Simulated assay, not measured.
Amino acid sequence: MASMIVIATTAVPDHVRGALTRWLVEPKAGVYVGTVSARVRDELWTAVAACIADGAAVCIHPADTEQGFQIHTAGERRRHVLDFDGLQLIALQPQQTPEPP
């Protein structure tokens, strides 16, 4: 059964953006939305995560969880997903301050 997904990207290579627009619409730069099967969703996410380079991406899709959705991330991000007994929460890493000379 097809379900809606949202993938948001930052600073990813152009070929990743092109691959995403084959299956999803891009209503805003770097944000992709669409309705695809679980198999297509998993294949898209595998391709995005493998080619992320210095960028970052997050995928949100419906799931049979208490929250009703699942979050996947790839790349270096300040926000990290933490799982507390099936409840996904976001933790912010503190910004690194440069050391004085």
Score class of each variant (00 low, 15 high):
A19I: 02
T21W: 02
R22C: 09
W23F: 14
L24G: 07
L24T: 08
L24D: 07
V25H: 07
V25E: 08
E26H: 02
E26R: 08
P27W: 09
P27Y: 09
P27G: 07
K28N: 06
A29Q: 06
G30W: 06
G30L: 07
V33N: 10
G34I: 12
G34E: 11
G34A: 14
T35Y: 15
T35H: 15
V36I: 14
V36T: 13
S37G: 15
S37L: 12
S37Y: 11
A38G: 14
R39W: 13
V40F: 07
V40Q: 15
V40W: 07
R41L: 08
R41M: 12
R41F: 07
D42W: 01
D42M: 01
L44M: 10
L44N: 03
W45H: 07
A47C: 00
A47G: 03
A50H: 09
A50K: 12
A50C: 04
C51K: 05
C51A: 11
I52D: 03
I52Y: 02
D54A: 05
G55K: 00
G55E: 00
A56D: 01
A57C: 03
C59Q: 12
I60D: 01
H61S: 04
P62F: 05
A63P: 03
D64F: 03
D64C: 02
E66N: 05
E66H: 09
E66A: 14
Q67F: 04
G68F: 12
I71W: 11
H72K: 09
H72T: 01
H72E: 14
A74I: 05
E76L: 15
R78W: 11
R79Y: 11
H80Q: 15
H80F: 09
V81T: 13
L82K: 13
L82P: 00
L82D: 10
L82N: 09
D83R: 04
D85C: 01
D85K: 03
G86Q: 12
L87P: 00
L87K: 00
L87N: 00
Q88R: 08
L89I: 03
I90E: 09
A91H: 12
A91P: 01
L92P: 02
L92T: 06
Q93R: 12
P94T: 02
Q95N: 10
Q96D: 07
Q96K: 12
Q96C: 04
P100T: 08
P101S: 06
